[in-house]
Design a binder for these strands. Structure first.
Length: 597
RNA sequence: GGCACCAUAGUUCAAUGGAUAGAACGGAAGUUUCCUAAACUUCAGAUCUAGGUUCGAUUCCUAGUGGAGCCA
């Protein structure tokens, strides 16, 4: 628990015992709403039953008791069943003085009490380039990893790459047939885009064949099954599984193009991984687990020879875990890889999968099966489920060309940032490299903030034309405020005003100054909550509120021109701490902040 | 057909069961001899419908409507 709440909690508990003989009541505080005076609010309605007194009276009696028994409490007021409590300036000044020089500001460092957590995210297919949906996944995964680290945990970031299967065979086949030996070098195309081009080519040719068969009188279903291209692709997959050297070589070549392309996109997005897994290595895993499950009686063999588990007791259905022909289904290898990972990392205490919410059911089943197989760690597995990104015209469909490509999006954002920056004309003296760095920072800041400020669980709307703004509730607004503070601090330094100067003579602060200090104080609670709920949105919304507050503070008060030295030093220190906090919070979102912009 | 999810200003997003539902964009009007106007200050504007639980419901429960999804 946190300092001020802890103090109040203990006090109120003692007060309740002394005044009413009550023990072990649930006591929680909330922040006092702006329109009322006070820092923390205790709701006294719940005490009505036990005290047999009106909520107003309980509030008044508790308030009096607190005022009499603790010198940090400066005032109280009661509105209906709400007891608003104010802590005095000395308390908040004291708090600020203890944290102002701490650059970690509320972050916990990796400690023995922290857990070891594996966080899987990104997990692309290798037949096409990354799009907007992947972008949300990547940003979310990276940010949650940052937040968990700041909560004192050790995080292993992993990416499992779906490098095998019918989808990549389609690209390979189309390239063989229509590619004329094209390579990323010969075309100047990014490798993932080149491979994606042939995935689309396959689909076009396939659709044409289907249409021809339908014209000859087949039903659509028959035609889709009978189209020669589909048979060829399936044959290629069989050849791959049989280890055909030619197929394997082509597969390696085309995948290597894709990886080179992904590396560029990942680098541009600013995400990274500690360990990569490839499905070509892991897809065979899990059969052993199925065998064990059969022996334990968790699974059963069906008449047709397939293996299944009945989860109807749990409100889920029967689930096939091995096909009649002995081949795996998705969940087979997911079982295998989970088991493998806990073997590979004996310290592992938690496993988080960052995957879209269309797989909610899949993960429910997966975790339930692991539990039934007797793995105690099954309850430490969780699905970081996020909503779809929707476009104004509806869902993205790669085959219909309605996807927003990640690379194109990043480039457009960069161009907009460049144009806006030039228009504002505040970047005199920047070198060419510094300018590019700034455009990158601002454009990525805008994109990342836009995506991360939304609750991960919810679907979000993305209008490429209108979504990315640089004003208002945006990343650049926060970046701008950081740059602005840094500018003041630079000026202070040239004027010989150190931020470390003494503020001891200061005993009172203004309401907005106090709000700033309390806002900084609030961070620790927000960080903890964000860690528990895996929600970068909480950090994003917190840092936005802090930024708005600072801008109000900045407009209302002079800093450098303030003549009272103690006040001036205090305001400089608040500014410095605020800049540090903005930078720290944005770092949790994977966003960099500039010194100037 | 079964399962789980979502529904808040014109639009995009907030709100551990608490007070007069917050922001941003867009709209209307203001603030630059003053530390960066990518800023600040005003104004107008919303909880899908019907029940229920509660001192109190945007939040929990039931039904309906609408949207997107998974399984078959």
């Amino acid at each position: 628990m946190i300092l001020a709440e802890k103090l109040l909690f203990d006090l109120v508990q003692t007060a309740l015992t002394e005044l009413y003989g009550l023990t072990s009541k649930n006591i929680t505080f909330q922040k006092t709403r702006k329109e009322f005076e006070g820092d923390f609010t205790l709701v006294t309605f719940p005490f009505t039953k036990d005290t047999k007194k009106a909520p107003e009276l309980v509030g008044k009696e508790l308030g009096e008791w607190l005022l009499k028994n603790n010198t940090s409490i400066s005032n109280y007021n009661v509105v209906k069943g709400f007891l608003n409590i104010s802590l005095n300036d000395a308390f908040w000044l004291n708090y600020f003085n203890t944290v102002k020089t701490n650059t970690a500001l509320g972050h916990k460092l990796a400690s023995s009490s922290g857990k070891t957590i594996m966080l899987e995210y990104s997990s692309p297919n290798t037949n096409k380039p990354l799009h907007l949906g992947h972008v949300r996944n990547n940003l979310l995964g990276y940010s949650v990893a940052q937040i968990l680290k700041a909560n004192g945990h050790k995080v292993i970031k992993t990416n499992i790459i779906n490098d095998r299967g019918i989808h990549i065979c389609k690209s390979m086949l189309a390239w063989q047939k229509f590619g004329k030996g094209e390579t990323p070098e010969s075309t100047g195309m990014k490798g993932d885009h080149l491979v994606g081009k042939y995935y689309v080519e396959f689909d076009k040719a396939y659709k044409k064949q289907v249409a021809e068969l339908v014209a000859k009188g087949e039903t659509k279903d028959e035609a889709e099954k009978n189209a020669p291209l589909m048979h060829e692709a399936q044959e290629m997959l069989r050849q791959w599984e049989a280890g055909n050297a030619e197929v394997k070589n082509l597969w390696k070549t085309m995948n290597s193009w894709v990886y080179a392309g992904f590396d560029v996109t990942y680098k541009n997005l600013g995400v990274d991984f500690d360990k990569l897994y490839y499905e070509s290595d892991t897809y065979i895993l899990g059969k052993e687990a199925v065998q064990q499950g059969l022996e334990k009686g968790v699974f059963y063999k069906k008449e047709n020879g397939s293996v299944a588990i009945d989860l109807s007791q749990e409100g889920l259905d029967e689930k096939i875990v091995l096909r009649a022909d002995g081949t795996s289904v998705y969940i087979t290898q997911d079982l295998g890889t989970a088991i493998e990972r806990f073997k590979e990392f004996p310290d592992l205490q938690e496993l988080i999968y960052t995957v879209g919410n269309e797989q909610d059911y899949h993960f429910k089943v997966l975790f339930k099966i692991l539990e039934k197989l007797g793995y105690a760690w099954a309850k430490e597995c969780s699905h970081l489920s996020y909503g779809m990104v929707e476009l104004p015209e509806g869902k993205m469909k790669s085959r219909e060309g309605t996807v927003v490509d990640a690379d194109e999006l990043l480039q457009e954002m960069f161009d907009t940032a460049e144009a806006t920056t030039k228009e504002l004309g505040k970047v005199e003296g920047f070198s060419e490299e510094e300018l590019i760095e700034l455009y990158r920072m601002v454009s990525l800041g805008a994109l990342k903030y836009f995506i991360l400020k939304v609750d991960p669980k919810k679907k979000m709307m993305f209008d490429p034309k209108e979504s990315i703004d640089f004003n208002g509730h945006t990343g650049p607004f926060i970046q701008y405020t950081h740059a602005r503070i840094k500018s003041v601090l630079r000026k202070a330094e040239t004027l010989g005003m150190g931020t470390g100067a003494n503020t001891d003579s200061l005993t009172t602060i203004t309401p907005v100054e106090k709000e700033m200090v309390i806002s900084l104080y609030d961070f620790a609670g927000v960080l903890e909550e964000a860690g528990k709920t895996h929600s970068p949105a909480l950090i994003a919304n917190y840092v936005y509120e802090l930024t708005k507050l600072y801008n109000r503070f900045y407009h209302e008060y002079s800093i450098l021109k303030e003549e009272n030295q103690a006040i001036r030093n205090f305001r400089l220190q608040v500014s410095k701490a605020c800049a540090q906090m903005l930078s720290n919070c944005m770092d949790l979102l994977g966003i960099k902040v500039p010194e100037r912009m």
